[in-house]
């Protein structure tokens, strides 16, 4: 329960921090922290335009996408407190629920019959497919390390003891940050601020969404960021008292948001053709984590 509330709270200002960081980096003052949320509220109060080509798929897709993110958040624990849903192998459920949302956002884009949106949909499907093994190897390694298979049990029994384990924590954080960037279609893979439809991934998929649905999708992105931030925060909250954990949680989220902002300010988007290689590199980093775990557990002889 507590993780749900905290993630919802974070989602209110996360994008604000990202945008503020980018503004400061480019020498501007930038809008207030809650400006993105205000924009969303405005969207939610607007009417919508639907394409003549679309069918009911286009109507249900944003809601399902949004619901899948909410469902995935319910699985995330907070420190010693379980998520609302917690069971053995819940990270598989987490990934597959998110995949359902992705499925609908992709067919929602294809429903418009637009050439651009199909292009974005194709890229989204490809990139998320390539990122999938990395997440599973990462979680599988931690399952091996801790002997548990649910998010909550993995995070509570994760002990950082030796130098190697700190290294593993750092690598895992890196992988999760990168997965979050890919899943949210952010900088090294996709540039959300580009003005050319040909080079977009996620933005071009939602070209035809408007009004309430667009608001849902955009808020979904905020939630997804906060969700991955919460996953990363769980590596560090450990067994501290609750107040300190909450402080650490927000600290990690803000650092994560600033990292996103800095990444977006100082790096350029990769060439589309290089993205698959980059994403697949994450899998090899995950395998590195796996070998690290084997090393710690003394399974290498």
């Amino acid at each position: 329960m507590i993780s749900l509330v905290l993630i919802l709270l974070t989602s209110l200002f996360f994008m604000g921090v990202v945008i503020r960081t980018k503004s400061i980096a480019s020498g501007r003052k930038g809008p207030g922290l809650f400006q993105p949320m205000k924009d969303l509220f405005r969207l939610w109060k607007k009417g919508s335009v639907y394409s003549n080509t679309t069918s009911f798929i286009f109507q249900i897709a944003p809601s399902i996408y949004f619901a899948s993110i909410i469902m995935a958040i319910l699985v995330i624990p907070f420190g010693e407190y379980k998520g609302i849903i917690s069971f053995d192998g819940d990270f598989v459920f987490f990934a597959y629920v998110l995949a359902l949302g992705k499925f609908f956002s992709i067919i929602g884009a294809l429903d418009t019959g637009s050439s651009f949106e199909g292009m974005g949909a194709s890229r989204e499907a490809l990139y998320s497919m390539l990122a999938e093994p990395a997440f599973f190897i990462l979680m599988g390694s931690f399952a091996l390390y801790t002997g548990h298979t649910s998010f909550h049990e993995i995070f509570t029994s994760l002990h950082f003891g030796s130098y190697i384990s700190y290294g593993l924590g750092a690598l895992a954080t890196f992988v999760l940050v990168m997965i979050a960037m890919i899943e949210n279609s952010r900088m090294p893979v996709d540039d959300p601020k580009t003005h050319l439809e040909l080079t977009m991934v996620h933005e071009v998929m939602i070209l035809d969404n408007s009004g309430f649905d667009l608001g849902l999708i955009l808020y979904g992105t905020n939630l997804k960021f906060a969700m991955y931030g919460a996953l990363i925060a769980n590596f560090f909250t450990g067994s501290f008292p609750i107040l300190i954990s909450i402080l650490i949680f927000f600290g990690v989220q803000i650092i994560f948001a600033i990292t996103v902002g800095v990444l977006e300010s100082f790096s350029a988007r990769f060439r589309m053709g290089n993205n698959p290689q980059f994403i697949f590199t994450l899998t090899s980093i995950s395998i590195l984590i796996f070998f690290g775990v084997l090393l710690i557990m003394g399974k290498f002889i």
Binding site: G47, Y50, T53, T112, S114, F212
Partner: peptide, 18 residues
Amino acid sequence: RNYFVGLHPSQKNATWGC
């Protein structure tokens, strides 16, 4: 979502062709 969408007028138009 249906409830909220119903509160405001919506219209049909061609797909956005950039």
